[in-house]
């Protein structure tokens, strides 16, 4: 059970980022959402059984440098193409949550040659007219926490925690970077949807049925645009299916990865 999670500083060009990894096997690259990296989740731990799980903190988040050259999610995608090349990752599974899902899609419309599969968990990046995403920039801290979950018991646990000064600083840093990347247009790139057909690799879209941040209605559009896609809607679940319903979601993702390995 007690697996060592290695945390390294990795320099890509002039930007140094914090990268955590554990496990052995084919690499799974997980791209976190706008909330940043919080902890080594049970979801990551479960994946280490068969894979080397690599979880970087994006430039501008947590322990990573902020980078003036990264001003948009497409910039972030270019950064991760360099990251994948620099680390010599030739054959990987890519998983992205929320904003991280958006980054993953932007990577793959550019270059899918080193990636075997895509798993999107409640991804941002495209827009469904008439269904605006939740406004995490106007919600207060309590609303933001509550709106992450279907089961408010999870929110209560988080709300009871008193963050340290360092955690508050990290939260503010993450929030600034998220505004830079996602404020306008709000959480999508008008030029992404029309190229999603280029992601010609097996894809899985996972969504909670009660997502107040990225509405579940977005799942249909992803399903329509991705050429080789499966959809899994987790019941009684908010914006963090890999946390709130990890008992169901984790095996589903594991089975997907196993099923498509060449």
């Amino acid at each position: 059970m007690a697996m060592r999670v290695q945390a390294d500083d990795v320099k890509i060009g002039d930007v140094t980022i914090k990268v955590r990894r554990a496990g052995k096997g084919m690499p799974v690259l997980f791209l976190h959402g706008a909330g940043g990296y919080t902890q080594w989740l049970p979801f990551f731990h479960a994946l280490t059984e068969h894979y080397e799980v690599i979880v970087p903190e994006h430039p501008g988040y947590g322990g990573s440098d902020d980078a003036d050259l990264i001003r948009t999610i497409p910039d972030m995608a270019m950064f991760y193409l360099e990251f994948i090349e620099t680390l010599g990752l030739d054959d990987i599974h890519l998983i992205g949550h929320s904003m991280g899902g958006w980054i993953a899609a932007e990577i793959l419309v550019r270059d899918r040659s080193r990636v075997q599969s895509l798993t999107l968990i409640a991804p941002a990046g495209i827009r469904v007219l008439g269904v605006p995403s939740g406004d995490g920039f106007i919600w207060n801290a309590e609303e933001s926490t509550r709106n992450l979950f279907h089961d408010q018991a999870y929110a209560e646990i988080l709300l009871a925690l008193k963050p340290s000064e360092e955690q508050v600083d990290t939260m503010l840093k993450n929030r600034f970077t998220s505004a830079k990347l996602g404020w306008k247009p709000r959480w999508y790139n008008p030029d992404l949807e029309k190229w999603l057909h280029r992601i010609r690799i097996p894809s899985l879209v996972v969504w909670g049925d009660d997502d107040k941040v990225m509405p579940t209605a977005y799942a249909d559009l992803w399903q329509k645009r991705l050429p080789d896609v499966r959809l899994f809607i987790a019941k009684e679940c908010g914006h963090l299916p890999h946390v709130e319903q990890d008992k169901i979601v984790t095996p589903h993702i594991q089975a997907f990865l196993k099923g498509i390995e060449r």
Partner: peptide, 22 residues
Amino acid sequence: MPMEMLLPPGYTSLQSMKNFFK
């Protein structure tokens, strides 16, 4: 107005925002 409206991220420098929180 709540803080989220008055001081959206980036409107002030990160350091000013940290000071404000303290």
